[in-house]
Design a protein around this nucleic acid. Structure first.
Lengths: 238, 238
DNA sequence: TTACGGATGCTTGCATACAAGTTCTCCAGT
DNA sequence: ACTGGAGAACTTGTATGCAAGCATCCGTAA
């Protein structure tokens, strides 16, 4: 029953960062695999896990697995009840809304800061927009998702607050997991790309007010799909 | 050398939450103790830790200790180099600035949302202000710190985004650790309380513009003390 | 038929032993 | 005196065994 989860895929334990040969800890590898699996909904919200089963599937002992789970619990993606069980937290619209609020607030602030900057080279953003168009036409959801993330990240980088983007990542897991549910709708993706275009235009012209408007609307779109998704995947929600 | 760190103090492993008797995991207890010790600078920035020593001091085995450390690493407070050592991350002004940016952005957004609310009962905020005054006179830094946190938290609660406050907590560790360095200055505390008072006044009258101004200035004060502190505690900084 | 009780199998929590790697020290040789 | 190398002593990483608690199922008795 649990064995049909598509995890792992065994990357090498040795990776090279630059010239330096770095040994990656099993515990880190396990964490990343689990986090990615939860984010991509390959492990369903609400699913119950078993340390022993997971350890066997991933071919590791329980020790590194437990350390990975401890980190996931910290991020709010997993809950553990001692002597009872471990499970992936269901999607809570309240948490999604709180994460959305955080994201909107930070993006607005980052956009405003980016508008202040003297040189605003939006060439990179334009190419990311083109990539999003390409993925949209090719129905490449994962590609679109990556380009979407890259675009928003780039705005933070231009604002000089890339660190804030990184600090925001853990909490964004809740948001991303929810977003992925509604992403298969091509029309929704079309709207998102139009939003992005408008935002980049505003940034290029340095119009903070217009950008503010578009970002705010863009961020609030996420929850629009909530009722439909909740009806379609009732088991995924709390 | 390491044995003079004032950790632990062995609280009971059983705590009562409401009527329910809950067994607290040692791993959680260890995490909270370490996080508090790092936040309160009882473990100095840059200090090197030893899993074996720490485990002995805290009277636990390395397993729960390591799970706690894994969470601290995730929060960026501790770094681990395999087969070499574990150490408390030094204070990086860049990280502090990024955390400050996040905090300012969120507080501005929360304040604006709170101003929109119909009922704005600032009585609780007023009593927290009084408590801050009291702690200031009594030179009770820990008390002031707690009341400070409570005040800012209350604004988030009034805005309906208490969840955002909670999501922000992990990253705020960097900010708090830095703030505590400069807190012993009574004059600085005086200014902070005046800021708080102005913010509460603005909230009571629902004046978002004035509040925005005060919150922004309040948030930016943190970094003012940076050069002096860096000169006084050079070993604490990266 | 229903209610109660105990055994069994599951779960996670913790401690310990061992493995692998790095750094430091000290001694020998030049 | 200085350099090099071998080894000891440390570090963290992982596996395994055991302990403790909860849920479920089955048997028994009313």
């Amino acid at each position: 029953m649990k064995s049909d989860r598509n995890l792992a895929g065994g990357p090498p334990a040795l990776s090279s960062v630059g010239r330096l040969r770095v040994r990656r800890r099993t515990s880190d590898r396990v964490y990343e695999e689990l986090a990615a699996a939860i984010r991509d909904l390959r492990i369903e919200p609400g699913a119950s896990l078993s340390e022993t089963d997971l350890a066997e599937q991933l071919q590791v002992s329980r020790t590194p697995l437990r350390e990975a789970i401890a980190r996931l619990v910290d991020g709010g993606l997993v809950s553990v009840v001692p002597q009872v069980g471990t499970r992936v937290e269901p999607i809570r619209l309240h948490d999604v809304e709180q994460a959305r609020f955080v994201r909107e607030s930070l993006e607005l602030a980052a956009f405003a800061a980016a508008c202040e900057k003297a040189e605003r080279d939006v060439a990179g953003l334009r190419s990311l927009l083109a990539e999003q168009e390409r993925c949209h036409r090719a129905h490449d959801l994962d590609g679109f998702f990556a380009a979407d993330e890259a675009l928003h990240r780039q705005v933070f980088a231009m604002s000089g607050h890339l660190g804030a983007w990184q600090l925001m990542q853990p909490m964004k897991m809740h948001l991303n997991r929810f977003r992925r549910l509604g992403l298969p709708d091509p029309e929704a993706v079309r709207v998102l790309i139009d939003d992005h275009t408008a935002i980049v235009d505003a940034l290029e012209s340095g119009d903070a007010a217009i950008g503010h408007e578009h970002i705010s609307r863009h961020a609030r779109r996420v929850l629009e799909a909530a009722p439909g998704l909740q009806g379609r995947y009732p088991g995924y929600f709390a």
